[in-house]
Design a protein around this nucleic acid. Sequence first.
DNA 1: CAGTATACGACAATGATTTTCATGTGCGGT
DNA 2: ACCGCACATGAAAATCATTGTCGTATACTG
Lengths: 152, 152
Amino acid sequence: MYGTARSEWRTTPRRAAVLEALHACDGFVSAQSLHTALVTDGVAVGLSTVYRTLRLLEAAGHVDVVRDSDGDGERFYRPRPDDGHRHYLVCRECGLSLAVESEEVERWVARIARDIGFHSVDHTVELTGMCDGCRPGPVDRRPHPAGRARVV
Amino acid sequence: MYGTARSEWRTTPRRAAVLEALHACDGFVSAQSLHTALVTDGVAVGLSTVYRTLRLLEAAGHVDVVRDSDGDGERFYRPRPDDGHRHYLVCRECGLSLAVESEEVERWVARIARDIGFHSVDHTVELTGMCDGCRPGPVDRRPHPAGRARVV
DNA sequence: CAGTATACGACAATGATTTTCATGTGCGGT
DNA sequence: ACCGCACATGAAAATCATTGTCGTATACTG
């Protein structure tokens, strides 16, 4: 199930449950809401374990992460597609998130790293905007009821 | 001094001091260390004011911001060059940060936004790696004494 | 120079994430 | 199967940058 890398950590029921719950979500979820979802679903799992598991998944490259644009740096997780990591365009109002094609950026990163001579260069790219349904009209704008959860 | 935009906020001694202190720093600084530097320098200024001023500067586009790569999402500020915003390649070990040429990415962002039809698309791009002086040798690696502060 | 909207600072509050530590459990070796 | 131990777990406390509160001070308008 964890496939790509050597097994550096144990496979336990909780971790499997966290991973499964993550896959069951549309789009990005926070650790907190993932925990809530699990508990609601009848899975007895501690908040710490959810956080720890998400960290493991992140370190292993199995999830993509975006951070809340405003202050507190809350993190949202999403299972990473098998064919490599992605970058996302997220609506500031309703949380709709779309994976975007980013080969151009990947090449740019590689070139910068090579030119400057840094090793092990990682990159973070986040795009935020307003989707079609959340028009920028200065009047009549209402917060989208769906919250920041959906993905396409 | 604030030049580019209409004066939407008062020019006060504290704000001038914060901006000056920011320019006096090499590379990125956190709000906390900027405050410490100010106080050490004999400038009586509250922490809240430093935070508020940095927020104003950020909103006005006068500073660039990067966020700590690990958990807490701490923010680091740097005066933005006059000719527009920049993206940075930051060394994970010593904090050395270099502004990189990013026109390719700017164009990519514009194209994505246009193709997908989002409005007011903002982007965040952060590159982290290991600079020349912080070799990846598995043994003998020592944390750089300079901390995460320098820039070129 | 007065009036008022804004800025200021000390301190409390926030809130996601991490740590602690006592207890439970996967898994390799026998 | 059984042991042993390193690792996993969770409840609660700790962390800590950042933001809110609110009474006071000060910049700016007329």
